[in-house]
Nucleic acid binder design. Structure first.
Lengths: 229, 229
DNA sequence: CGCGGCTTTGATGTTCATCAAGTAAAGTGG
DNA sequence: CCACTTTACTTGATGAACATCAAAGCCGCG
């Protein structure tokens, strides 16, 4: 592991959360923080465990999910680097109501909630920024759910592909970080149907599939399917 | 309309939001606040309109919803008296992403966002309380969506009836404040199926229906249906 | 009293989950 | 490095759950 302070400076640079802190507060964060590496597939935190820290994703990809009986997980949201994982829920209740696991090799950077609470009390710019971020996250989750409930399966698949293109990978050709099963868990459908519809898109010449790699060939039609079913 | 300050004192008494304010701040709220009466069915605020005020429901029942083409609204949440309506979304973006309307005759009490922001900056107990409330609301909305996606129609109807019993009316016999159509919009199903399943429950001797009035006769079975499908 | 909206029930078709079965890929231990 | 096991992926067939369509009764309201 390289110099921690160096790392911290690097990630703080882009970070919309900690940038509101004063130099003194940042020093406290640097002293308090822990950095943990999680291998792809590893559980980061489980439902029911106490909430002690604010988690911040430095690199990788993480899913926030709820597991149900019968191997039926439901993914609530994905966190990208520079996101605060589970920010929405850490201020309510003492235990996690959801679980977190790494979709790719990830580095999580954690700070004690007691320190975060201290900052909230002494730095109003910071707490204001938290309020804004939470509001944004809530809007996104609500929006996501609305979109799911309105779309048929084809529309959902189109929608999630567009998300990967626009929000995560910023390119028309990428390696899917998640299995077909997990894709189904994000958009609420079975693995079989995820595959079926991806195959349809391939036959219709909208995408190209090579195992985990997906290339978008006709984004206009994908957008049309995402909107009009 | 009766004395405003008197009203304010009455509602502040139970209010978890404003109770964190100092007497001076409360005086500012009392001076700034507006109180508006909305008739059942009236639109309180529409998607796309600027967010200028924090709304607080004094009496009545309000729905937060998103409308879609084809007379297909989707209800995101209901607000009971003493709830801050749309609290989750007011700190992000300049325009409402959702609409609000009154399900029953309602009194809304509004305070300028500029004042709320002032309090956030000067009163850290208040902002901390806001964070907790938002976290709680987010948890509830996420939970609500998870439950919907996992249940079949019978389970959803059972679930929403239990919500009315436990959260809103606190009695086993109540007048439904909403139409069958709105009930469908909360739990994501068609009006016809809401009616069909309510009829099934009536035939199975679980509930009694007299127009808008519903009486629960067998809450144990309702709970069982809500949990196990 | 008649019109429009809400409610109710039945018949029909579509969408999607489930089941089954087979292939490819990816770990695992010798 | 190769057999072996396991996990992920893929396709088809079937049935269940649910939306849609249609039609009729009910109720409040001008």
């Amino acid at each position: 592991m390289t110099n921690n302070n160096q790392d911290f400076d690097n990630c703080e640079y882009q970070n919309y959360l900690f940038q509101e802190l004063t130099p003194e507060e940042l020093a406290l964060v640097a002293k308090n923080k822990r950095e943990v590496f999680y291998k792809k597939g590893e559980i980061i935190c489980e439902e029911g465990k106490p909430i002690n820290e604010l988690l911040y994703l430095k690199s990788g990809l993480v899913k926030l999910f709820k597991s149900s009986p019968g191997n039926r997980d439901q993914i609530i949201s994905l966190a990208k680097p520079m996101d605060c994982v589970g920010l929405l829920t850490v201020f309510h209740g003492i235990n996690y109501k959801f679980s977190l696991s790494a979709l790719e090799d990830s580095v999580i950077f954690s700070v004690d909630m007691s320190l975060i609470n201290k900052f909230i009390f002494q730095n109003s710019i910071f707490s204001c920024s938290l309020l804004r971020k939470m509001s944004k996250l809530a809007d996104e989750i609500i929006q996501h759910n609305l979109e799911l409930n309105q779309r048929h399966l084809r529309g959902r698949i189109a929608h999630i592909l567009l998300d990967f293109i626009n929000d995560i990978y910023k390119t028309h050709s990428f390696d899917l970080p998640i299995s077909r099963k997990e894709m189904g868990e994000i958009i609420g459908m079975t693995t079989e149907n995820v595959i079926r519809i991806l195959s349809e898109f391939r036959k219709d010449n909208i995408i190209e599939i090579n195992g985990k790699n997906i290339t978008i060939k006709d984004i206009k039609r994908l957008e049309k399917i995402s909107e009009h079913g």
